[in-house]
Design a binder for these strands. Structure first.
Lengths: 321, 321
DNA sequence: TAGACGCACAACCGATGGTTGTGGATTGTG
DNA sequence: CACAATCCACAACCATCGGTTGTGCGTCTA
């Protein structure tokens, strides 16, 4: 590919060879091999150089794209001045959506998104500098952050009940958390030991709910299918879950209240990290006005935020959607 | 790259090797070589397989993108069921913009854009099936299309005068074509023998204008710079020229009238071409309402369209912008 | 503690991909 | 019109690369 592009740019195999520090014959062989691989002729060879065929013209931008991809791939792991690495708690959850919004707002900033197993690993990776930031539910106080790692609350996300059309709560405007006792809540695809699972374990324990946080994950589509067809199964999702709403399924997102379970996302980063994109990300995330749920809220003990407890509206706030 | 991705997908070098029909040792060597190239460790080797490091996680999507690019590159020239190939008269002219709009409206349709030298070559390429369609100024009647090639007018594009702030016509609301006699018009970057050059040659001859269609092309930016600083030089552009308007330059697009020069773009394709995307492109282009210039218009003799000559408004229509 | 499993290292060897040398085709020039 | 200059393809040759087989070590499990 590199040789092909060099030959196009040079217009002649000879000068391309010089530029690549190989012989003209090697260029000829490489191009011939590429043409044989593809099964089409890329150049017409003339006495004063090589001219692209139509196939060659079509192929050229793809070749350039490939070289660019190779360059970016190598750059993504090059130590020093690499793209910003952000860890999100799950690709299909709100933080992933937030980071994607950031990417859309600043497409020129190189961004790599990873998902580590557990908040501890994520915090450790931030501390060691392997990643630049993480979006996790480790808001203080309650857990000690390592020295040099800072956190700021980004989004207090209210959970909603996700049910099919035949479910008991399908037509409810809002559901009190206590009324979920005895109902089966299904949260597949979680891994033991992450704070995501710990959240639902504590939520279930606090209100006596039956929340299955284990079981194999066959993907969000399978989950949606199962929920849609079941009159007893439900799951927790949020407004910001970045999923493609399936057509044909009559699925509903029912607000929860008294209290509303809150998933408190925070951004964590190393104080001395000089990456310029990190500042941009922090500004972007804090600028986006965080959801401010009405009524009573609940968050796990290890993640209580300032906003916990009753707020302005004293009680029983209805759905806002 | 392929081996790396296979190893990630399999989770173990052994099964990746089986899938690739090579030995486990070969996989080990390949991954080791890749890690050495990149200078980072991609896997942590455990007793029950290979787990991605953080660097590996970051690298993985880039590797997949690279493989996808390679696949698309090969597919772009694979005979039979390849992406739609469209020839446009110039990358920075209106047809390129039209095709780009089509791509934005249908991003799922594979599209390859090429530029051939001259309408004859383009028509020939359409006839032989090497490309699927061309956007050219070869509207009938006046030239005979080969059997099996059909054409439809797509856009009658009115030319405008592009001048800097110190030019004589900089403040004019519209300029009659006859008033350009004696002024120097510069149209660099054209190649002899294309219908693009022929157009300006005939336009110049018909009205006694001085149009330089030769000379080296240093890019549109250089052209803009030169025009901006000159009080005598001007060039022809159109509203739809897909260029990035430079900040800092006070450049103007002045309408032309009595008559307004029209550049008549047509879509040409082979009648028996079954490519489904071709139908979509044709529909998209004919659905976009073509510009309908007011007042008297002019087109070269070899490209007279139905719309030629005086239309509804009898004379001296002003600028529409 | 033995066996299974999984990866790395070493030795080996053929195919790959470079080199030099040469020839044919086209273009510009005295 | 011949001659030199270019430019690319083909042939022969050879080093290196990248695969193979064989083996060893560490870890998990019965």
């Amino acid at each position: 590919m590199r040789t092909f592009v060099a030959a196009v740019d040079a217009g002649r195999f000879q000068s391309a060879a010089a530029r690549l520090s190989i012989t003209q014959q090697a260029v000829s062989k490489r191009v011939a091999a590429l043409e044989k691989d593809l099964g089409v002729q890329l150049f017409v060879r003339t006495a004063r150089g090589a001219q692209l065929t139509i196939d060659g013209q079509v192929f050229l931008p793809h070749a350039r794209a490939l070289l660019l991809a190779a360059e970016q791939a190598a750059a993504s792991v090059r130590p020093g001045r690499r793209a910003l690495r952000v860890d999100v708690v799950g690709r299909r959850l709100a933080p992933a959506g937030l980071v994607r919004d950031f990417h859309r707002a600043h497409p020129e900033i190189g961004l790599d998104v990873v998902t580590l197993f557990g908040a501890d690993a994520a915090v450790d990776a931030v501390r060691s500098g392997v990643i630049d930031a993480t979006l996790r539910a480790v808001t203080m106080p309650g857990r000690q952050l390592p020295d040099g790692v800072e956190a700021t609350p980004v989004l207090d996300e209210p959970l909603r009940l996700f049910v099919g059309p035949t479910h008991e709560f399908a037509t409810a405007r809002a559901v009190e958390l206590a009324r979920l006792v005895g109902h089966r809540i299904w949260m597949p695809g979680n891994i033991r030991g992450t704070e995501w699972t710990a959240y639902y374990d504590e939520l279930g324990a606090a209100f006596g709910l039956t929340i299955d946080t284990i079981g194999p994950d066959f993907g969000i589509e399978a989950l949606l299918d199962t929920i849609a067809d079941s009159s007893t199964l439900a799951t927790f999702l949020t407004d910001r879950t970045p999923l493609v709403w399936p057509v044909g399924h009559d699925l509903r997102l029912i607000p929860l209240c008294d209290p509303t379970p809150i998933y408190p996302h925070s951004l964590l980063w190393r104080t001395d990290n000089p990456h310029p994109a990190l500042t941009a990300l922090r500004d972007h995330l804090t600028a986006a006005a965080p959801d401010d749920p009405d009524g009573e809220t609940w968050a796990p003990s290890w993640a209580r935020t300032r906003r916990c407890g009753p707020t302005r509206r004293p009680k029983g706030a209805g759905p806002r959607r």
